[in-house]
Design a protein around this nucleic acid. Structure first.
Length: 626
RNA sequence: GGUCCAGUAGCUCAGUUGGAUAGAGCAACAGUCUUCUAAACUGUAGGUCCCAGGUUCGAAUCCUGGCUGGAUCACCA
């Protein structure tokens, strides 16, 4: 997708290295490159042959071994013509003599473990600490914006758990791309027209008796959803009646009066019938009011919203033009199709025989409109994996229509959310409603907090704010920690567990850190690196924390490359686990040596800052107390 | 049937371009608060990385074949 950017970075760094113009900072932040270059020189000098790229492997030393970085020497044996241990030892001695940062080394089988100097880690940490937004690229890269489409609701029913995964993913991916220096336009396509909304409209017209959100006290999207259900119930009744009369089920499905009426309504809508339009506008307005509340509670937002009702006409026009050019073909009944059999796919319907548009029609129009509007460098569709085929076709049809930028469309395909007892089925009433779920998470957070009683001296408003952060944080983390492309199981019981690998655990650690910092301030302590602190010998736990903090920048890049909030989530969990161990094993404020105490305050503060940054990329807020 | 995706501890999930003894959390059991927040920490137990071949010095990771589960192939969106 966008590996170009990252490759450039590496090439740039190496180029600089060769010219010897790298600053001290670069050296520190690219310690792997420094080591790699050292190994390269060592191999040339010791064994008289230049290693090819990929032969030198520098990786982080695994926890159960001594050292910071490890060089795998197996690939170098062909050059060295020696045993693994011997090769590693020779390289280790060379590096220890040549590189100032190498303090010592050890060899285990074919692995050369390097331990860097205390001074390296300490000053690396100092460099990180003084950066305002460590790991985040602030100035946008040159080029056109990225567009991220997510949410994409139908306006005939309220949002459910599946939409929640979609919204959280889309919002977080947008944040992560921004953190990688891209300008991002968050966009939404509202499927506000089509047979689905006509069904709700028809049911309301027939059985609604003028009900409104105001008269019923129901959220607008829920009210409209109720009529969608009502339509389905009545439709089924009609089908059963027809079947009892001896009509084949298949024919009954197509010919039940209600469905014919709904189809007629859709035609009237496309013809701009005034009464239908007014009903449509009214009911959609109800839905938007409801959606706005859910979006606000989820904390997601959009920069530009497209409505299918505004893009489908362009879509139809594009289809008609392509038909004239002979790119598409018309069947006898008047329906228009794309023939994709040469590309290993099937034929795809683009206009029904009655001339009305289908889903694909509007998506063609929306894509073209968006390219006209923004000339995006990349367009990411956050849409479930059940639509993989749809996006394959969309890209292909756009290409056939002659739009080279079709290659810039990327379908970020995520897996289904299932419940422990299986898939959500509206028929069986097992669909988890988004609003209900958010409320449930809030309530559990409240109960849990009240039980622990740590917020008893807070005002009610402040308490509510914290419950909200905790409840929502738990929900978001639970969903975002799973690799997007995988199906996931949502266990309601597990999701409200606030122990272990959860959002609450991370928030708790943040609150803990803030508590220590507050107490330090109360004692009027000053920490930081402003006035040249004396050298501190790092405990191994402290060094581990520094290493993990350093990793944040690379994780943000990796997450951007893979469109994966899960990488951020799992990283943060690692960091927080490490910090809690450190917190448990060492004193901070009670540490007697001031320089050690101050360093630990810096370390704690920095950990807190990274937690906050990382959670921000997931759209999760962190509380000062909990 | 065609195409695509997945399969790792009882459950939910990690596991960077192939590297050392495959890791967490939950659940179970045993410990740790007179202390900077115990929503925490420590320990015990738990594995045929779906199966079989292949490539490699080295495979959970790559290739081939099979098994299982899911998605999709609609005049639904």
């Amino acid at each position: 997708m966008i590996p170009v950017f990252h490759n450039c970075c590496i090439i740039f760094a190496v180029w600089n290295f060769k010219r010897g113009t790298r600053s001290k900072m670069d050296l520190k932040n690219n310690i792997e490159l420094t080591i790699e270059q050292g190994v390269k020189e060592a191999v040339e000098e010791l064994f008289g042959q230049e290693p090819v790229s990929g032969q030198i492997q520098v990786q982080k030393t695994r926890k159960d071994f001594t050292g910071d970085f490890t060089i795998v020497v197996f690939p170098l044996l062909k050059i060295s013509q020696r045993k693994p241990e011997e090769t590693a030892t020779l390289l280790g001695e060379y590096l220890k003599n040549k590189l100032e940062v190498v303090h010592s080394f050890n060899v285990v089988k074919g692995f050369l473990n390097l331990e860097l100097t205390n001074n390296y880690w300490e000053s690396l940490f100092q460099d990180i600490y003084v950066q305002a937004d460590f790991g985040i690229v602030k100035e946008p890269a040159a080029g056109n914006p990225f567009m991220v489409e997510y949410s994409s609701p139908n306006t005939n029913k309220p949002l459910h758990l599946g939409h929640i995964r979609n919204n959280l993913l889309g919002f977080s991916v947008s944040k992560i791309l921004e953190a990688n220096g891209h300008e991002v336009i968050k966009t939404n396509i509202v499927n506000d027209r089509g047979i689905h909304i006509c069904k709700s409209m028809l049911a309301w017209q027939k059985w609604g008796r003028g009900e409104t959100p105001e008269s019923t006290g129901k959220k607008g999207d829920h009210l409209v959803g109720d009529y969608y259900v009502k339509f389905d119930q009545e439709y089924k009744k009609e089908i059963n009646t027809l079947v009892e009369k001896g009509v084949a089920r298949e024919d009954a499905l197509k010919n039940a009066p209600l469905i014919l009426e709904a189809q007629e309504m859709l035609r009237q809508w496309e013809n701009g019938d005034e009464e239908v339009m007014n009903l449509w506008k009214m009911m959609n307005a109800w839905v938007y009011e409801g959606f706005d509340i859910t979006y606000r509670e989820l904390g997601v937002s959009f920069d530009k919203i497209y409505y299918e009702s505004e893009t489908f006409k362009l879509g139809k026009k594009l289809v008609e033009e392509a038909l004239e050019k002979g790119i598409l073909f018309k069947k006898e009944d008047g329906s228009v199709w794309a023939d994709l059999t040469d590309d290993g796919l099937d034929e795809k319907l683009l206009l029904r025989s009655d001339g009305t548009a289908v889903y694909m029609t509007q998506d063609l129009g929306t894509a073209v409109l968006r390219y006209q509007d923004y000339h995006f460098d990349e367009h990411i569709y956050v849409v479930g994996n059940e639509q993989n085929y749809h996006f394959q076709v969309l890209k292909l049809v756009l290409k056939k229509m002659g739009y080279p930028w079709a290659d810039k469309l990327y379908h970020l395909s995520y897996g289904m959310v299932e419940l422990p007892e299986g898939k959500m089925k509206s028929r069986e009433g097992t669909v988890v409603d988004a609003d209900d779920l958010i409320a449930e998470m809030y309530n559990t957070a409240r109960e849990m907090s009240e039980e622990l009683g740590k917020l008893d001296d807070y005002e009610d408003e402040e308490k509510k704010e914290i419950y909200r952060k905790i409840g929502l944080g738990a929900l978001k983390y639970f969903i975002l920690k799973v690799d997007p492309k995988k199906n996931m199981t949502f266990d309601p019981r597990e999701s409200v567990d606030f122990n272990g690998n959860t959002g609450s655990f991370i928030q708790y650690t943040y609150a803990r850190i803030q508590s220590v910092l507050r107490k330090a301030k109360e004692r009027r302590l000053k920490w930081g690196f402003q006035d040249g602190k004396p050298e501190v010998i790092l405990e191994s736990k402290e060094k581990e924390l520094v290493k993990l903090i350093r990793d944040f920048a690379a994780i943000v890049r990796e997450a951007g490359k893979n469109f994966s909030p899960a990488l951020i989530a799992n990283y943060t969990f690692e960091l927080v686990k490490e910090y809690n161990q450190f917190y448990h094993d060492f004193s901070i404020l009670r540490e007697e040596k001031p320089e050690k105490r101050d360093f630990r305050l810096c370390l704690s503060e920095m950990t807190g800052r990274v937690i906050e940054s990382a959670m921000n990329l997931l759209g999760i807020e962190v509380p000062e107390r909990m």
